[in-house]
Design a binder for these strands. Structure first.
Length: 597
RNA sequence: GGUCCGGUAGCUCAGUUGGAUAGAGCAUCAGCCUUCUAAGCUGAGGGUCAUUGGUUCGAAUCCAAUCCGGAUCACCA
């Protein structure tokens, strides 16, 4: 698409120069795809040109159309509607594109650029299992990583574990006091769920204690502070920071269970990481960097000994970076983590996939790194995504409305199984194949449902819609792909490569064939747009449109029983091209495309 | 209160430097399985693009104000 648009713009510019002796730069010229109800392939918007040269739009359009037909190659006809000049392009332009790429298994993917970017996603706390919010994070992060790879970048995927702090001690304390020494094995629970259970135990026991104290006449505030559990958990954190042997051992043991549980969930989701980072390994580094910045005068110390940075000149506030007692805060760790990462993987960008409630935090992080004069500071980018709501409103852990990721995945698989069995297409599958299929379909539905929405926007997760398999869904695209695969295997054609050569330059394309080719033609630019904007939704919407276009083509024109051999081969190659693009596009969303379903 | 983000069909969402009659899916209604997978296709109804003003040939898109919703401004992470 793009090169044709560029040549049209260039010719338009020279037309203005030749006929009106005026300069107009090509970016000021608008060339669009012609809307479907008008004849033509491309449309030049003539209004700005008319204004520039001071003539009537319809007259200019007529002259320009004439000029282009003479000077630009490949234009068969034109028509003018008001100030719009619609141009029709020779079929051979599309055919040429088709012949060039139909058999190219890398079509749409950019070549290696030798440019490295790092992307962080995931970022769970080690005190409770993954939930729906993490799922959106992971799906976006993974998909953006794959899209960046497709655009030619070297991508380092990293995770950050929030593995230390008071919240971790809460589940540890509850486990120590209230468990009978269960392990994931003995309890039959996944490690992360077991720990999450004790986190809840802590909260409920604490609330009981507070209620008791309030009944004894204490104020709410006092009760919260004086509750034995609250004091014990503070003590535990102190012990942890002082490297107390027992606390550290318990911490290691419980975290290892959580990691095992997370790994299992990551595998089910189908995401992966090149490196896991742990805040426990970077918070000291962050403190060291703050000390260094203090010496450089980037930070300042208050009377109580706490360390701050003044960002009021940047329109932000003064921000604490080190507590009076010398312990680190959230941002301190992030400074350390960023530094460690850049040492390990020098890269031109560090992308943080984190919810938009932390927009402010990342503004601060970037500014601090800039003030510390870190080479990676400019490359810090917050890939900020919106929260996930339920139809009933916001998810609240206290009200138990949080959707657990493992449960959700199981539910999706179960629904996929029910729907597939109901359609009665499962005779040819063995148990193993069924399991794989149901997983692919369930995850396809879930991933597409989440990724089709612009990441920046808040979204509503409706469980009933998310398991829908009809319409604007992942399974619809998977289905289209599977159907094409079946078509191709039935055709028993040899290599697409050799068939492509047999296509004649004057093959009379049907309108539906041409539409499909025009859609396929956009794949490259969709990938580069999605990569530039970190937006998988662009790709999701494109793939749906492509699959829909194919279904229309499929419904209207027969492929295997086409009336002529040339048609049959053309349509088979077109189908094969489409299915390749669908499959590779889906893979960038982390969605598998089964060959039969 | 300051800052940031959002408001498009009953619901969920598209709408890429301002372009032609604002598009999908779900839901509702009406058709299409004796040839390649009906998880599909065709058609119908459904809109004051939050409101008001401005910029211009032209605004859902840009600007201003207002209304509504959300986030954030923590010695929580």
């Amino acid at each position: 698409m793009s090169e044709m648009i560029e040549t049209l713009k260039a010719h338009t510019a020279s037309f203005i120069k030749d006929s009106y002796q005026k300069e107009l730069f090509t970016p000021q010229i608008t060339v669009n795809k012609t809307p479907i109800d008008y004849t033509g392939d491309f449309t030049i918007v003539v209004f700005p040109i008319a204004k520039h040269v001071g003539a009537r739009p319809d007259i200019i359009a007529e002259q320009l159309g004439n000029y282009l037909q003479k000077h630009a190659t490949g234009i068969t006809s034109y028509n003018v509607v008001k100030g719009f000049l619609n141009l029709s392009i020779k079929n051979s332009y599309w055919l040429q594109f088709f012949k060039q790429y139909a058999a190219d298994k890398h079509y749409g993917f950019g070549s290696k650029q030798n440019r490295r970017v790092m992307i962080e996603y995931g970022g769970p706390n080690t005190n409770k299992p993954l939930h729906l919010g993490h799922l959106r994070n992971i799906l976006i992060g993974y998909s953006v990583s794959e899209i960046l790879k497709a655009a030619g970048y070297d991508v380092v995927k990293v995770n950050i574990y929030n593995d230390r702090g008071i919240h971790i001690c809460k589940s540890m304390l509850a486990y120590k006091k209230f468990s009978k020494g269960e392990t994931p094995e003995s309890s039959g629970m996944k490690g992360d769920h077991l720990i999450g259970h004790y986190y809840v135990v802590y909260e409920t026991e604490l609330r009981k204690q507070i209620a008791d104290l309030v009944q004894q006449g204490k104020s709410e505030e006092e009760a919260k502070q004086q509750a034995p559990l609250a004091q014990e958990v503070q003590e535990m954190l102190r012990l942890w920071e002082n490297n107390d042997e027992h606390v550290q051992a318990l911490w290691r043991k419980m975290n290892s269970w959580v990691y095992e549980g997370f790994e299992e969930t990551f595998a089910r989701i189908g995401c992966d990481f090149d490196r896991h980072y742990y805040e426990s390994e970077t918070y000291l580094l962050g403190k060291a960097l703050v000390e260094e910045g203090l010496r450089q005068g980037v930070f300042y110390k208050r009377a109580d000994g706490s360390v701050w940075i003044d960002l009021t000149s940047e329109g932000l506030d003064e921000k604490l970076v080190l507590r009076a007692d010398g312990t680190s805060v959230y941002i301190t760790q992030d400074i350390g983590t960023a530094d460690l990462r850049f040492k390990e993987f020098p890269c031109e960008r560090m992308i943080y996939t984190v919810a938009n409630e932390q927009d402010y935090h990342f503004k601060v992080l970037k500014l601090i790194c800039q003030k510390l004069d870190k080479p990676y500071a400019g490359g810090i980018h917050h890939l900020s995504y919106g929260m996930v709501d339920l139809p009933s409103g916001r998810m609240k852990s206290r009200e138990g409305t949080v959707v657990d990721a493992d449960d959700l995945i199981s539910e999706m698989e179960k629904t996929a199984a029910e729907k597939s069995e109901a359609l009665g297409k499962m005779e040819l599958f063995n148990e193993q194949e069924k399991k794989q299929l149901f997983h692919a379909l369930g995850m396809g539905a879930l991933k597409f449902y989440i990724l089709r929405v612009d990441p920046r926007k808040r979204m509503v997760f409706n469980p009933e819609e998310s398991i829908d398999f009809q319409g604007f869904t992942g399974p619809f695209i998977q289905y289209t792909h599977a159907r094409i695969c079946s078509l191709i295997s039935k055709a028993d054609i040899g290599s697409v490569h050799t068939l492509v050569k047999s296509i004649s330059e004057d093959y009379p394309m049907h309108e539906l064939e041409k539409n499909l080719i025009r859609n396929l033609h956009e794949f490259t630019s969709i990938i580069s747009d999605a990569a530039a904007q970190y937006n998988p939704a662009l790709l999701a919407n494109y793939l749906y449109a492509l699959a829909k276009e194919y279904n229309q083509f499929y419904q209207e024109l027969s492929v295997l029983n086409a009336s002529r051999e040339s048609e049959k081969y053309f349509r088979l190659i077109l189908s094969s091209f489409t299915t390749d693009v669908l499959k590779r596009g889906l893979s960038l969303l982390g969605i598998n495309a089964p060959e039969k379903m």
